[in-house]
Amino acid sequence: MAEFSLKASRVQPGSWWLLGIASAIVAGLNVDPLALLAQIAILVTIILLAREYAPWSQSLKFYLALATFVVVVRVIFRILFNLPDGSTQIALTLPQLSLNLGFGGNVSLLGDVTASSLVAATTDGLRLAAIIVSIGLANTLANPRKLLKSTPAALYEIATAISVAINLAPQLIESLQRVRRASSLRGRSKGLGALAGTIVPVLEDTIDKSLSLAASMDSRGFGRRGILTKKLILSVRLISLASVVFTSVGVFVLLVGTGLQAAALGLLGAGFICILVTVRMTSKNSIRTRFKKETWLLQDFVVASVAIAAVSARLLGWQV
């Protein structure tokens, strides 16, 4: 069998998504800024080591830029809408502004900023940043087209839409670069906004490309389906209704949280099973077949178990 490798294309896209989602959950529950920074560093290292050349794998820097932006905005907002947090350690002394908006009394902006509030804001920002980089990991390493192949038939249309959308992002960047190069050949007079010369050609390009892809898929038989019997349609509707009821009641009980966790988990489990059954049943009207069997190899089990281990460790209260 093929040898062990952690390069992006050798691991199932599902495993990368599992790792990304697990990492996002861990980040969401984390309260330690240093641990969050370490997590981001680990994620970036994994991306750099595993990624290979592919159109969707070139977007790391955009995720990092977005993550940085989120942290900065979070801190700026904390300084701007400054509420006393009871601490006396002042890190930053700024003049306090008091605004009367005509309702709800005075609103105060700026003022003395405590060290603890800055740390809290940074931690919040880092948490979001780590979640963004986690999703970035899944997006840069998982091949969206291969992921599409392993979705159940009933979800195929939705998965296609998502995959086209994911594919579009790097294409947008590509056309953006091309159009910007082209417009530097023409120049632009001062009266025109900087975006004027790029948006129109890029949008046109993107729409053309997606329409062309859609036409191509349709011409080759995408969108064909078999026949569902009336009886089957009725039962699918009933079971999916049941799944909605089970999951919403389950979530409600869980959030109210009055010692009924076991019941809530039971309801959620029932809801989940109903969802699986509907997906299974509606997949029957698909006539689509697959040429290659996708099999999980050693590397997939390694990636998946790292993901599961990280989440379980966090849920059981250990520090990672």
Binding site: R220, G221, R224, T289, R290, F291
Partner: peptide, 12 residues
């Protein structure tokens, strides 16, 4: 090459 065949439901 197999994309269309998969969509049209050809067996393996």
């Amino acid at each position: 090459l197999v994309y269309g065949l998969e969509q049209l439901g050809f067996d393996r």
